[in-house]
Amino acid sequence: MDVFMKGLSKAKEGVVAAAEKTKQGVAEAAGKTKEGVLYVGSKTKEGVVHGVATVAEKTKEQVTNVGGAVVTGVTAVAQKTVEGAGSIAAATGFVKKDQLGKNEEGAPQEGILEDMPVDPDNEAYEMPSEEGYQDYEPEA
């Protein structure tokens, strides 16, 4: 019985440690998101679009440190934060509304985080759909 109880105690310690790591990862992701939003706020009209992409990228980098179902929630929060940063930029006159959601080359930025393969159960990952990809044929 002692062996059984000791095993359960060790398992509990492992769960607590994993929860603490997840909590730490979420806190880091939130900190990076805040950094990115402050970065966007300090940019001029020309830099705002690039700044919004930076927020998304920093958040995406930190999301990889967070495991399990938390990833889905962090990704949703990050996307809403990026959308909010863009709205703030438009409201303050840093950028025109028609410039939001495009990178410096004018290509749409939507789907940055949505296409990231995420499995809350950590069982399997699927690649994003290939609808947006084109076949590449090298020139002879």
Rank of each mutant, 00 (worst) to 15 (best):
residue 2 D to Y: 06
residue 99 Q to D: 15
residue 2 D to C: 04
residue 93 G to K: 05
residue 124 A to E: 08
residue 116 M to C: 13
residue 20 E to T: 10
residue 70 V to P: 01
residue 125 Y to A: 04
residue 138 P to K: 05
residue 137 E to I: 04
residue 127 M to E: 13
residue 29 A to T: 08
residue 71 V to D: 01
residue 44 T to A: 07
residue 105 E to C: 02
residue 83 E to F: 13
residue 16 V to I: 14
residue 31 G to R: 08
residue 50 H to A: 13
residue 122 N to I: 11
residue 123 E to W: 09
residue 130 E to H: 10
residue 140 A to E: 06
residue 81 T to G: 04
residue 14 G to H: 14
residue 139 E to Q: 04
residue 126 E to C: 14
residue 126 E to S: 05
residue 7 G to H: 06
residue 6 K to H: 03
residue 94 F to I: 06
residue 15 V to R: 00
residue 81 T to E: 02
residue 16 V to M: 15
residue 85 A to H: 04
residue 39 Y to I: 09
residue 9 S to N: 15
residue 136 Y to N: 03
residue 46 E to S: 07
residue 116 M to Y: 12
residue 34 K to E: 00
residue 54 T to L: 15
residue 57 E to F: 08
residue 85 A to M: 13
residue 17 A to F: 14
residue 73 G to L: 12
residue 10 K to V: 15
residue 129 S to L: 06
residue 126 E to N: 11
residue 129 S to M: 12
residue 45 K to M: 15
residue 32 K to F: 09
residue 23 K to D: 00
residue 62 Q to V: 03
residue 79 Q to V: 09
residue 90 A to W: 14
residue 107 A to Y: 11
residue 109 Q to P: 12
residue 139 E to W: 06
residue 31 G to A: 08
residue 121 D to Y: 13
residue 132 G to M: 13
residue 13 E to M: 14
residue 17 A to L: 06
residue 96 K to Y: 13
residue 81 T to P: 02
residue 84 G to S: 11
residue 128 P to S: 05
residue 124 A to C: 13
residue 45 K to I: 11
residue 99 Q to P: 02
residue 54 T to M: 15
residue 123 E to F: 13
residue 91 A to Q: 09
residue 105 E to G: 08
residue 128 P to L: 09
residue 42 S to Q: 07
residue 110 E to L: 12
residue 121 D to E: 10
residue 94 F to W: 15
residue 65 N to L: 07
residue 94 F to Y: 15
residue 88 I to C: 05
residue 35 E to I: 15
residue 24 Q to M: 15
residue 34 K to L: 05
residue 125 Y to W: 09
residue 39 Y to G: 03
residue 69 A to V: 15
residue 46 E to L: 04
residue 33 T to A: 05
residue 66 V to Y: 12
residue 127 M to N: 09
residue 131 E to M: 02
residue 51 G to F: 11
residue 53 A to M: 15
residue 28 E to R: 12
residue 113 L to F: 12
residue 74 V to C: 11
residue 17 A to D: 02
residue 115 D to T: 11
residue 71 V to Q: 04
residue 98 D to G: 13
residue 125 Y to D: 09
residue 85 A to S: 04
residue 5 M to K: 12
residue 30 A to M: 15
residue 38 L to I: 03
residue 138 P to V: 08
residue 121 D to H: 12
residue 108 P to K: 10
residue 70 V to W: 15
residue 6 K to F: 03
residue 84 G to C: 12
residue 75 T to P: 01
residue 111 G to K: 12
residue 112 I to S: 11
residue 48 V to N: 00
residue 33 T to P: 00
residue 7 G to R: 15
residue 40 V to S: 00
residue 106 G to P: 12
residue 56 A to C: 09
residue 57 E to V: 07
residue 63 V to A: 05
residue 110 E to D: 10
residue 61 E to W: 14
residue 60 K to E: 01
residue 75 T to D: 03
residue 78 A to Y: 14
residue 96 K to M: 14
residue 133 Y to C: 09
residue 59 T to G: 06
residue 104 E to I: 04
residue 118 V to Y: 12
residue 59 T to L: 06
residue 85 A to D: 03
residue 49 V to A: 11
residue 127 M to W: 05
residue 2 D to V: 00
residue 97 K to T: 11
residue 72 T to C: 12
residue 120 P to H: 08
residue 48 V to Q: 00
residue 135 D to Y: 09
residue 100 L to G: 07
residue 115 D to N: 05
residue 87 S to P: 04
residue 77 V to K: 02
residue 36 G to V: 13
residue 108 P to G: 04
residue 37 V to Q: 00
residue 127 M to C: 10
residue 139 E to G: 06
residue 84 G to P: 02
residue 115 D to C: 07
residue 76 A to F: 08
residue 20 E to K: 03
residue 16 V to G: 03
residue 137 E to V: 05
residue 88 I to R: 04
residue 134 Q to W: 13
residue 7 G to A: 05
residue 56 A to V: 13
residue 8 L to S: 00
residue 44 T to N: 01
residue 100 L to W: 01
residue 12 K to V: 15
residue 26 V to M: 15
residue 8 L to W: 12
residue 6 K to Q: 02
residue 117 P to A: 06
residue 28 E to V: 10
residue 106 G to R: 07
residue 23 K to L: 14
residue 35 E to A: 06
residue 78 A to W: 14
residue 105 E to F: 07
residue 83 E to V: 14
residue 85 A to V: 11
residue 77 V to S: 02
residue 83 E to I: 14
residue 102 K to L: 14
residue 99 Q to M: 13
residue 17 A to N: 08
residue 120 P to A: 10
residue 121 D to V: 04
residue 128 P to Q: 06
residue 133 Y to W: 11
residue 63 V to Y: 10
residue 139 E to L: 07
residue 110 E to P: 11
residue 135 D to F: 07
residue 41 G to R: 09
residue 36 G to E: 03
residue 113 L to S: 11
residue 12 K to Q: 05
residue 20 E to P: 00
residue 131 E to D: 06
residue 65 N to V: 10
residue 61 E to V: 10
residue 12 K to F: 04
residue 60 K to C: 10
residue 72 T to L: 10
residue 24 Q to W: 08
residue 64 T to V: 13
residue 33 T to N: 00
residue 77 V to M: 13
residue 75 T to Q: 14
residue 22 T to W: 15
residue 64 T to G: 05
residue 110 E to A: 14
residue 76 A to W: 13
residue 92 T to V: 13
residue 103 N to T: 12
residue 97 K to E: 03
residue 96 K to E: 11
residue 59 T to P: 01
residue 60 K to M: 15
residue 6 K to S: 02
residue 85 A to E: 02
residue 6 K to E: 02
residue 51 G to R: 11
residue 22 T to L: 08
residue 103 N to R: 06
residue 86 G to E: 13
residue 120 P to V: 05
residue 8 L to M: 06
residue 81 T to L: 12
residue 107 A to V: 07
residue 72 T to V: 04
residue 121 D to S: 10
residue 123 E to D: 10
residue 105 E to Y: 13
residue 91 A to C: 11
residue 128 P to E: 06
residue 117 P to Q: 13
residue 66 V to N: 02
residue 68 G to A: 07
residue 28 E to P: 01
residue 79 Q to I: 11
residue 20 E to W: 07
residue 131 E to N: 11
residue 10 K to C: 02
residue 38 L to E: 03
residue 13 E to G: 06
residue 94 F to M: 02
residue 134 Q to H: 04
residue 59 T to E: 00
residue 31 G to M: 15
residue 129 S to K: 04
residue 129 S to V: 07
residue 41 G to D: 00
residue 97 K to V: 11
residue 82 V to N: 03
residue 140 A to K: 10
residue 91 A to F: 13
residue 27 A to H: 07
residue 116 M to V: 02
residue 25 G to F: 14
residue 118 V to D: 10
residue 30 A to D: 00
residue 52 V to C: 13
residue 133 Y to S: 03
residue 64 T to Q: 08
residue 84 G to T: 13
residue 73 G to P: 02
residue 68 G to T: 13
residue 26 V to H: 00
residue 96 K to T: 11
residue 97 K to R: 10
residue 125 Y to T: 09
residue 130 E to A: 05
residue 87 S to K: 03
residue 84 G to N: 10
residue 121 D to T: 11
residue 15 V to D: 00
